[in-house]
Design a protein around this nucleic acid. Structure first.
Length: 460
RNA sequence: GCACGAGUAGCUCAGUUGGUUAGAGCAGCGGUUUGUGGAACCGAAGGUCGGCAGUUCGAAUCUGCCCUCGUGUACCA
């Protein structure tokens, strides 16, 4: 992008100097970045704790890699070779380009290549971390989000692939979803490879366009996808997408292959056998799932929610999958090490949390403090005495942190959804009693200091 | 990236043949009540009308460019 010359496009830092008095820092956030509030964070914590338990149960190691990597460590393997470097946040650091990671798989490949001699083989690791993508945000999609990844590195055994699907299901169900709320779709890159042979498609461009079109079946339906396989399609905003230019008889072959809906590649058949051995049933063979175009080499999976998701305005939105993965046998060998097959799966945690918030009414124990009202600052010592009693009993509590009348203090307590307030003014101090007002019921009790913690515990 | 829509007080929004000093509800602040929240009443305050330029005697309103948000679409590791 060329910087424009002229006062209207001066960067804000320049404006600041030009007009010191008027300058106000922006309260807006950069596009695609958001603040996250307690409710969402608590549900996210809940999801994370489920993930960790399941991962330990399945025998995975916990790993953390840094946010930044050298751009060529992760960038050279960008599947979209048409515009390398785009889509990631990068800057030059001491003459070398570094980038914020855009997923956890590329850093894993780098980690494995770097620690090739030390790691167990096969290597099973899981990772939770923020990733960044420099692209247009969409409904429930931001430019910074939390991802969970579980990978098996160094094994061709398809039991690994099957277990990934099973463990992800276990995580979802622990988080409160029913079997009817989600489905694990399974396919294989080999299915489309076979299809291309049948169709006699050799050109990479046509392959890519065809795959992209097939990927849209769930969202657009077969009729629209047919247009994308043929000449092209105009969407309802009037935008036109060029198609793959397949001939009608070729499209018919694809239609037949999709309708058949029976897995005909050995890898998928074997995975299904393993699913049976585990008595895992919540999957479907779906040849229309595509995933990363040049990245995956074998089985691929995608987890989709089956309920409607709404945005903040209450409109239903195209939510897409909440996770997926597959087998990527070339990623580690790109670093020069020997062939090292791998398979992995990931969940977009923020999107899962967004959907969970709508599906389930989560009730958490109050995290809000009991508020000790301040009648007279000279009595701080007495207030601290009460405060310590509560905090020693592990009860969230605070002395009113502001200034002002009792009414104001009550309004504050109400606003933060405090379970109750404590009155310890002159009257109570004389009687050596504490008054506790339950803010939910309005009920008020007087108790001796030594019984206070136990009495309050009954209410929270 | 492309297309369509939107941007007016902290929030939700009124505000058209362009016309004085830009409105309301809620929230916030002060008071009625200096020891009791969620209710009521009263009062004051709050705005570069997203930004910059243009047309005009006069622009929230018309035009252009830009920014941001939303939705779809493209791309998606």
């Amino acid at each position: 992008m060329e910087p424009k010359v002229g006062s209207s496009n001066l960067p804000s830092c320049t404006k600041k100097w030009k007009n010191k008095k008027k300058f106000k820092p922006s309260k807006e956030l950069p596009s695609g970045f958001i603040d996250r509030q307690e409710k969402e964070l608590l549900i996210r914590d809940f999801v994370i704790s489920n993930i960790k338990e399941v991962m330990i149960k399945y025998g995975f190691q916990y790993l953390e890699t840094p946010s930044f990597e050298y751009t060529d460590s992760i960038g050279k393997f960008l599947p979209d070779k048409e515009r390398p470097g785009e889509g990631v946040f990068s800057f030059e650091d001491e003459n070398r380009w570094i980038s914020l990671r855009y997923d956890l798989t590329a850093p894993l490949a780098r980690y494995v290549a770097k620690n090739y001699n030390e790691i167990p083989k096969p290597f099973k690791r899981y990772q939770l971390g923020t990733v960044w993508r420099n692209e247009k945000p969409g409904p429930g999609r931001y430019r910074e989000f939390l991802q969970f990844d579980a990978d098996y590195v160094g094994t061709n055994n398809l039991q690994a692939d099957a277990e990934l699907c099973i463990l992800i299901s276990e995580i979802l169900e622990r988080c409160g979803l029913d079997k009817s709320d989600y489905i694990v779709n399974v396919s294989s890159r080999k299915f489309t490879d076979n299809l291309f042979k049948k169709l006699n498609i050799i050109s990479d461009e046509q392959k890519t366009t065809t795959l992209r079109a097939l990927d849209k079946i769930e969202r657009l339906g077969w009729i629209e996808v047919q247009k994308l396989l043929g000449e092209g399609r105009k969407d309802k905003s009037g935008d036109y997408t060029k198609g793959a230019n397949l001939k009608n008889d070729q499209i018919k072959i694809i239609e037949k292959a999709l309708k058949n809906n029976e897995p005909d590649t050995e890898d998928v058949l074997e995975i299904i056998n393993i699913f049976n051995a585990y008595n895992f049933k919540n999957y479907k063979f779906d040849p229309s799932i595509i995933r990363g175009l040049e990245y995956y080499t074998g089985p691929i999976f995608e987890v989709n929610l089956k309920f409607d998701v709404k945005n903040l305005k209450g409109q239903n939105i195209q939510f897409g999958s909440i996770g997926g993965g597959g087998r990527y046998d070339n990623l580690v060998s790109n670093f020069g090490n020997l062939d090292y097959p791998a398979t992995g799966i990931s969940i977009g945690l923020d999107r899962l949390v967004f959907a969970l918030m709508q599906k389930k009414d989560f009730k958490f124990k109050s995290t809000r403090p009991i508020v000790i009202c301040v009648f007279d600052k000279n009595n701080t010592k007495q207030y601290v005495e009460i405060l310590n009693k509560l905090r020693e009993a592990n009860i969230s509590s605070e002395i009113y942190p502001g200034e002002g009348k009792l009414k104001k203090q009550m309004e504050y307590a109400n606003k933060i959804q405090s379970p109750g307030v404590i009155f310890y003014g002159d009257d109570e101090i004389k009687k050596a009693e504490v008054k506790f007002r339950n803010l939910k019921t309005g009920e008020e009790i007087s108790v001796k200091i030594e019984n206070l913690a136990n009495e309050i515990k009954k209410f929270i």
